[in-house]
């Protein structure tokens, strides 16, 4: 009965093929669903924040210009101006960049180019561990060490200040900068270094004149990512910023960045006050969006 067994074989193959196709289709659907989840979450978050945050301007007659450029934030008296917070966020981020970028960059260069393996094996995990520390612990560290230090040794009346925020943020952005910059430096082809050294350049000269310029786009991306981390940081900042509502004019002023304004008052806010906090969120979101555009631009340049 060869015929019969042949048919059996065909049907067996067919059924196994069917199963295969079914699995194929099913897994495609599962993957599609998973990847859609993040898009859906993004749309929901944007939609919700914008819906809530634009409400006071469209429906309640508040002026958006006054919101952005207003100096007074007194929710109980219906005054909502966030200029001091915008300035505070920008100052804190720039300050953190000034301290964090050189340290992070030099660490990355050291790890990728100079450090003997035995030392890199200690420093690399340490930097990565730094990235894993929950941000609130940075805040506690700042409150327990940096703030009292500023009060007791620099004679400030209050240690909760712009400089305290800058120091905490600079430490927090280090792992991001180091990891991304190190990867991009390592990706520079060995031939570049060999060529430079063969022409008689010193190792340090090679690093700064050849390797770093070649890794420029990656390093820029590292800085922008670190920037994003600094501007969005909330829990660590809320503990060391002091949260005063002043337009910062010196490093010793206590400040209230955009993020802490939301976190500090959301628990107590309702009505227009709450919507204005969402509006603060929109401004913060715009900053992040701009950073992402810059990052995308850097990325596309790097590809060329």
């Amino acid at each position: 009965m060869p015929n019969h067994s042949n048919e059996e074989l065909v049907s067996q193959i067919e059924s196994s093929n069917k199963r295969k196709y079914f699995l194929e289709k099913l897994s495609e659907k599962v993957f599609l669903f998973c990847s859609l989840l993040s898009v859906i979450s993004l749309l929901l978050i944007i939609g919700f924040v914008f819906y809530k945050g634009t409400h006071p301007f469209f429906a309640e007659g508040y002026s958006f210009i006054e919101f952005i450029f207003g100096l007074d934030w007194v929710p109980s008296e219906d005054k909502f101006g966030i200029l001091p917070m915008i300035v505070a966020s920008i100052f804190a981020t720039i300050g953190a960049l000034i301290i964090g970028v050189p340290i992070g960059l030099f660490t990355a260069i050291f790890l990728a180019e100079i450090a003997p393996k035995s030392i890199a094996r200690i420093i690399s995990p340490a930097v990565q561990l730094l990235a894993g520390i929950p941000s609130v612990l940075y805040g506690v560290f700042g409150l327990a060490i940096i703030v009292p230090f500023l009060q007791n040794h620099l004679g400030l009346a209050k240690g909760q200040s712009l400089i305290a925020v800058i120091l905490v943020l600079a430490i927090m952005m280090l792992p991001t900068i180091v990891t991304v910059a190190e990867t991009s430096i390592r990706a520079v082809p060995k031939t570049y270094r060999e060529g430079s050294l063969a022409l008689g350049a010193s190792p340090i000269g090679t690093i700064f004149k050849v390797v770093v310029p070649a890794a420029k786009s990656g390093i820029m991306a590292a800085i922008v990512l670190g920037l994003g981390r600094a501007i969005g940081e909330t829990m660590a900042v809320i503990l060391v910023a002091g949260n005063s509502l002043v337009l910062p004019t010196s490093l010793t002023d206590s400040i209230r960045p955009l993020t802490t304004n939301i976190a500090l008052e959301m628990g107590y806010a309702f009505g227009t006050h709450q919507e204005m906090l969402f509006a603060t969120g929109i401004v913060l979101f715009s900053f992040i969006l701009i950073l992402n555009l810059v990052l995308a631009k850097i990325g596309s340049k790097g590809g060329k």
């Binding site: 109980s76 008296e77 909760q160 002091g242 949260n243 005063s244 509502l245 002043v246 206590s254 209230r256």
Partner: peptide, 14 residues
């Protein structure tokens, strides 16, 4: 005093 009169440089803690 009102919230608007509170000294601006005050530390705000939750």
């Amino acid at each position: 005093y009102s919230s608007g009169e509170l000294i601006r440089s005050s530390i705000v803690a939750s």
